[in-house]
Design a protein around this nucleic acid. Sequence first.
DNA 1: CAGTATCCAGCTGGATACTG
DNA 2: CAGTATCCAGCTGGATACTG
Lengths: 118, 118
Amino acid sequence: MEKLVQKKLKFRGNEYPCCASLTMGIIGGKWKTVILYHLMDKTLRYNELRKEMPTVTERTLSLQLKALEEDGLIVRRVYTSKPPLKVDYSLTDFGKTLIPLIQSIADWGDLVAEKYSR
Amino acid sequence: MEKLVQKKLKFRGNEYPCCASLTMGIIGGKWKTVILYHLMDKTLRYNELRKEMPTVTERTLSLQLKALEEDGLIVRRVYTSKPPLKVDYSLTDFGKTLIPLIQSIADWGDLVAEKYSR
DNA sequence: CAGTATCCAGCTGGATACTG
DNA sequence: CAGTATCCAGCTGGATACTG
């Protein structure tokens, strides 16, 4: 006679009660999907990303990039050791497994914006 | 000579800089996708949802359900006027347009949990 | 049964100035 | 160029007790 306990899912030290929340734990938040969306088909430098996302602050962009890098979704490559620095960001192979999902997220947002913008 | 300004997207009074962030504004947060995941294929009563999501508090579940209802993704149906109350929740037609996305979110979470749980 | 009320902690993200 | 440092506001969500 034992209770059926749902198995917790784990990723990088965090536990999630459900597979959907695990995904949201990794790509959730205000900016992560936007970053991934812009990196979906190309490598971008830090300032190029800023131009694509005019309303994000430097600090926040920096923190979110670091988090995505820690979760293994993007790589940060440094090309110079002295200022002016050259750094760029791109998806890892693991990050690329998210492309269809990011595309769906963007498509649904497009659909809604189109339908309800009037 | 004008600057190319990205068009903002709007939904229910909020502005989003990108289609991906619009979607996340609607289904983001710690619990919304989990609720939608459980309502994907069936109608559930309040306490049934709680049982599926043992770690959410009553207050938070209540707030998130209200937000999803306001955004038109779920319907709340009341069957009794006196306690004990009977209330249930299900996806609206608009909410159902999210099913493939929620499924992808859940699938990617499953994949990651499987790969990295060891 | 299906919530609400109250109170509060911590996280997320913004503003601004500064730097290797 | 690509960030970091500092300081802080507001939102999100938790704990707990109570209720039509």
